[in-house]
Design a protein around this nucleic acid. Structure first.
Lengths: 357, 357
DNA sequence: GTTAGCACTCATTCATAGGGAGTGCTAAGT
DNA sequence: ACTTAGCACTCCCTATGAATGAGTGCTAAC
């Protein structure tokens, strides 16, 4: 039981005392019921529900143990118990039986997803699907291209000293940006510069290009080189991780339906975090390392706006290489058994769909 | 008084009865006070505030008149009065004295806005500025290009039958899209097609190109023509009003601070409408026709999610041609005198900034 | 036309009481 | 050594009602 080391919250530890088969089973029933009903569950209810032929009094004793272990807590003296974060953790790690998505739904997911061809659209529909299947917020990180290979660059003169720079990657992504040059260049000068880059660097990685160009400039610091370098810098900026590290959210407003999040202030922080993206990206990045579905429960994420939420993620792969991660955000009290399957399946489908062409 | 015709809500009309100078002045004071304090204002307060040397009793009589005219209402029997939509309307149309933005703030706005060069960035900062200056939600419609003039097109082969199409407009906008062709084309075929388009249609409008291409196809229905046409269709789709008709929102979450919108359901509808965009775009489009600042109060917009909000908009011009519209959304109870200036000034600054290069 | 006075209406606040759910503890039963 | 029944107790929740205060409409006098 790999968790035993971690759960030394109260006096008792798990190995220490009464955390036997029975207690586990009761915790399981409790969490399941709480997730279903949303209300603290008391000993009487638990006695009835568990089908274990124990009296409420006995249950109470066990609950007391669980509470001491920090797995459950009661909102106030005379309420039932609710799972704590550790309780959820244990439940998910060792008690939960994941409910495989029924095949009708898988078909539906696939159908919806494979409608779209272009990557941008795919990411968006995946996000929407996650949200509509879970009734929570869906998020999908845009696929990362490990090595951005240069294919072609174009410089088009605009008015004055402004030059439209278009960079095309081997993968067929187009990035463009207007740069302002030091002096005005003629169309033929620009064309020449583009040709130079296109001929010398086709297929190279962007960093590689940058390196070469810098050393080239040391030898030969003419205007042409300077504009090429500038262009490349811009291109790098456009493509750089900072930009390509992005995610798409759908169904944020679904979250407004959950009353555990009903406090405006909490909600606001949550929504702001969707817009800032920064911290959330960090979290997503982290879960991209994981093998399969990963779950952050409540404060586990260490990111305050998510305090009362859980984040369920799964990385998705293109050609057996992790390309990104997707997931859903919802209240800690969510139907994990179902959500996990949905996230899992969607990740696989998205990977396949992105690979397809 | 151009409004008199419209205001036949209760029994009395404005021309009909007691809507004299004094009543107007009182309405003005009432609305101002209500906007400041947010609570129904009673006769005693009004008597004190107005500086008009009238007893509360007299005020009550006048209030009674105003109520009959549908300009004010009381939430319940023993509360003060609050302005109705018509009340706000009258206030804004003929009572309000717009407070010009103090020059320090104008400078600040200009400074923030002119930092950015590229149109996309400009639109975004304008939106953020609107939101941060008003503490409400700011929105900016992206500039419309009336005539999209063709400059250049490129076809780049991807894997299989997919072709990356890049279309560049005279204005330096880049639109790209992956199209799937009926059969696989060789790079030289694609180049040929691009050259054909580039040579024959440089500077033409997109619709014009489309026309010509169609008639051309009637004479000469070869593969090449078909792919060119397909490409053009895609390009049109990318550029078409539907796409270019878009807006950017900032500071949505500011709205969560207003308790008149605190009801989750209302909030949710409002946020959803930001995501759907469709209806809001319609409204914005409408106000693009207007000459200057335009205001929709509460249900006036005829769009339910905005029922308890006001929308203050102003079109912005590039080179004396209306290019788009921007504005803010907030609770009906907002400081119109200030907001109007902010919207007005921002529109002018954005227009100038977009023109600059 | 204006004002004072008065009865009246509501929202809001507060204290109070009763009911219900559920607990912890203790002592008895197995 | 568990398990259970019983009981006192705690705490939330929902009336209920009274007191308060703000503000109104109406009437009659100025």
């Amino acid at each position: 039981m790999r968790l035993s080391g971690r759960l030394v919250t109260g006096r008792k530890t798990i190995s220490d005392s009464g955390f036997n088969e029975r207690a586990q089973q009761l915790l399981k029933v409790l969490v399941e019921r709480y997730i279903r009903e949303g209300e603290p569950v008391g000993s009487r209810t638990l006695a009835r529900d568990s089908g274990m032929d124990l009296s409420p009094a006995t249950i109470r004793n066990i609950m007391s143990d669980l509470e001491e272990m920090g797995l459950v807590a009661s909102p106030h003296t005379s309420a039932g118990r609710v799972p704590t974060v550790s309780g959820y953790r244990l439940f998910i790690d060792s008690l939960l039986t994941v409910k495989p998505l029924d095949s009708r739904e898988v078909r539906e997911l696939r159908k919806q997803l494979f409608k779209d061809d272009d990557p941008k659209g795919l990411v968006e529909s995946a996000s929407k699907l996650l949200s509509s299947f879970t009734l929570m917020a869906g998020l999908v990180m845009v696929p990362k291209r490990k090595h951005v290979a240069f294919r072609q660059i174009e410089f088009l003169p605009l008015t004055g000293k402004r030059v439209l720079t278009i960079l095309i990657t081997r993968e067929g992504e187009v990035h463009n940006r207007v740069i302002t040059t030091r002096r005005q260049y003629s169309p033929s000068e620009l064309e020449q510069a583009a040709n130079l880059l296109n001929e010398n660097y086709a297929g190279a990685g962007l960093e590689e290009m940058h390196q070469k160009l810098v050393s080239e400039m040391d030898r030969n610091r003419d205007d042409m080189n300077r504009i090429m370098r500038r262009a490349l810098e811009m291109a790098e900026q456009v493509i750089s991780p900072k930009y390509d590290n992005d995610f798409v959210v759908a169904g944020q407003t679904n979250l407004m339906n959950f009353d555990e999040l009903s406090e405006m202030n909490r909600m606001r922080k949550l929504f702001d975090s969707f817009n800032e993206k920064h911290e959330l990206l960090h979290l997503l990045d982290e879960s991209m390392q994981a093998k399969g579905v990963q779950i952050f429960i409540g404060e586990e994420s260490g990111y305050q706006p998510l305090d009362h939420c859980s984040l369920v993620t799964a990385p998705y792969e293109i050609d057996n290489r992790v390309a990104g991660v997707l997931g859903v955000i919802g209240p800690t009290r969510m139907a994990y058994d179902r959500v996990i399957s949905i996230v899992d399946v969607t990740a696989k489908l998205l990977g396949a769909a992105l690979k397809k062409p």
